[in-house]
């Protein structure tokens, strides 16, 4: 289990990295390495070139911007875990990030790495789906923004061109006092989720004004439960409401692997989205 031979590049700027990405054949970007390195060690990927993004300081950072948060692609998951701006502007992410692997992997793992890898059960893409995040990618023709709804192009396949690099993600904030809840089911503490669910609720006068419900780990990419969201609008929150509204999650197309059959994933989608909503409703301040 040793990495195959490759050439190593350590660009100092986004422009340099994009230039390398455009000019090198069969190149892979190395961010935190928590997914790419195991794949290299197992020789699941055999790149001719590895472009290490760890030399580009400009790609790291969390900043509060108009209407939300901007997080640089190379920002470590650990920095999100301990970030006060994130707790204020996107408490859902603060809660979800604790479920991302273990301390040792969060210390290295990055936001951009997780989004580019796009594992179906990963937490950061789930949060992005929940808040309608926007992904900024830079390529030879400059920077463009991709709404998260359009970001997954398939199983573990982001809608980026081969010569594009994820530079940041913008997470729109929900109103202060909104309710949030992240529920995850994994076999062991820190494992990849089998299924997780993210819920956000804004209420007015004791009724749900706006809700967002997302499940991940079920299908090839995070899924917003639009039918559930519509069923909640204008209603007073209750366990019963959430239960019936989440039943439709059982109909999501589901993956199957060694950890769980498809039907179990669909079942968990309904259970965990309900639990996330219950938690979110209880947190409305």
């Amino acid at each position: 289990m040793k990495p195959p031979p490759f050439s190593y590049h350590l660009p100092g700027s986004v422009e340099e990295a994009v230039g390398l990405l455009g000019s090198l054949e069969n190149a892979k970007l190395l961010a935190g390495g928590q997914s790419l390195m195991p794949m290299l060690n197992m020789r699941f990927v055999l790149p001719d070139h590895v472009i290490d993004l760890n030399g580009i300081g400009a790609l790291s950072g969390i900043s509060a911007v108009e209407g939300g948060l901007r997080i640089g692609g190379m920002t470590r998951q650990r920095d999100i875990e301990f970030s006060d701006p994130v707790k204020t502007a996107c408490p859902l992410l603060s809660e979800a990030i604790l479920q991302v692997g273990h301390r040792q992997t969060r210390n290295r793992g990055t936001v951009g790495g997780s989004l580019s890898h796009l594992d179906p059960s990963a937490e950061i893409p789930a949060v992005c789906a929940a808040v309608d995040a926007e992904i900024a990618v830079t390529g030879p023709n400059g920077t463009r923004t991709i709404p998260f709804a359009e970001f997954p192009a398939g199983y573990m396949m982001p809608a980026m061109e081969p010569d594009e690099l994820l530079v940041s993600v913008f997470l729109p904030s929900w109103k202060p006092g909104h309710g949030y809840g992240f529920e995850e089911f994994a076999r062991r503490h820190g494992d990849f989720a089998i299924v997780s669910a993210a819920a956000l609720i804004e209420a007015e006068g004791g009724r749900i004004k706006r809700a967002s419900v997302t499940v991940s780990g079920v299908g090839p990419a995070p899924v917003r439960l639009r039918e559930t969201e519509r069923a909640l609008a204008g209603q007073a929150g209750s366990e019963e409401l959430f239960r019936s509204a989440c039943e439709s999650a059982r109909g999501i197309e589901a993956l199957e692997d060694v950890h769980a059959p498809a039907s179990y994933r669909q079942h968990l989608a309904a259970v965990l989205s309900r639990r996330a909503l219950v938690k979110a409703w209880s947190r409305i301040g």
Partner: peptide
């Protein structure tokens, strides 16, 4: 936790420690 899976053609399907689960401290 521990399940050493093989498919019908006797191919092992749990060949890393993310697929084959050892009990953890938690």
């Amino acid at each position: 936790y521990e399940w050493m899976g093989y498919d019908a053609d006797a191919n092992p399907v749990t060949t890393n420690l993310a697929e084959y689960l050892l009990v953890g401290a938690a």
